[in-house]
Amino acid sequence: PEEVRRLVEELYRKGVSPEQVKKILKKQGIDEREIEKVLRRIG
């Protein structure tokens, strides 16, 4: 979803590592598979 992409990109631009991005967003209840999809697209 758009909102997940925005959150991931925001953290990524701040220099947060992909592993940390995953941890942070998982705590917020976001599906890990969604996060990984976005990270793959960015990375």
Rank of each mutant, 00 (worst) to 15 (best):
K27A: 13
K37N: 11
L11G: 00
D31T: 06
R41M: 15
I24Q: 06
G29L: 03
I24S: 04
R6P: 02
S17Y: 06
E9M: 15
K37E: 15
G43M: 07
E34K: 04
K14R: 15
L7M: 11
V4D: 01
R6L: 08
E19M: 12
Q20E: 10
D31P: 11
L25H: 00
E2P: 07
K27M: 14
G43L: 07
L11Y: 06
Y12M: 11
G43D: 15
R40E: 15
G15S: 03
K22P: 02
I35C: 01
L25T: 00
I35M: 02
K37S: 07
L39V: 04
E2F: 13
E19T: 12
K27S: 13
I35Y: 02
S17E: 09
V21R: 01
I42Q: 04
I42L: 15
P1W: 13
E34Q: 07
L25Q: 00
G29V: 01
V4H: 02
P1K: 08
V16I: 11
E36H: 03
V4L: 15
V38W: 14
R33E: 14
Q20T: 11
R40G: 08
K22S: 05
K26Y: 12
Q28C: 04
E10H: 10
V21Y: 01
E32H: 04
K23F: 09
L11A: 02
E36T: 04
K26L: 14
V8Q: 00
P18V: 11
K14H: 10
R13Q: 07
R6A: 09
E36S: 04
E19H: 13
G43E: 15
L7Q: 08
K27D: 11
K23I: 14
E32Q: 06
P18Y: 10
E32F: 02
L25V: 01
K27F: 11
S17R: 10
K23E: 12
P18Q: 08
V38Q: 08
I24P: 00
K23R: 14
V4S: 02
E9R: 13
E2I: 11
L39G: 01
S17P: 13
Y12H: 06
Q20Y: 07
E19W: 10
K22M: 15
G15C: 04
Y12E: 03
G43Q: 15
I24H: 04
V21F: 03
K22D: 01
E2A: 11
R5Q: 13
E19A: 11
V8P: 00
G15N: 05
R33F: 06
L11R: 00
R41H: 15
R6M: 09
L7E: 02
G29D: 03
E10T: 10
I24K: 05
R40M: 10
L11F: 05
Q28N: 07
R5G: 07
Q28E: 07
I35G: 00
E34A: 07
Y12R: 09
G29F: 03
R41L: 15
E10L: 14
Y12I: 13
E10N: 09
I30K: 02
E32W: 04
R6E: 06
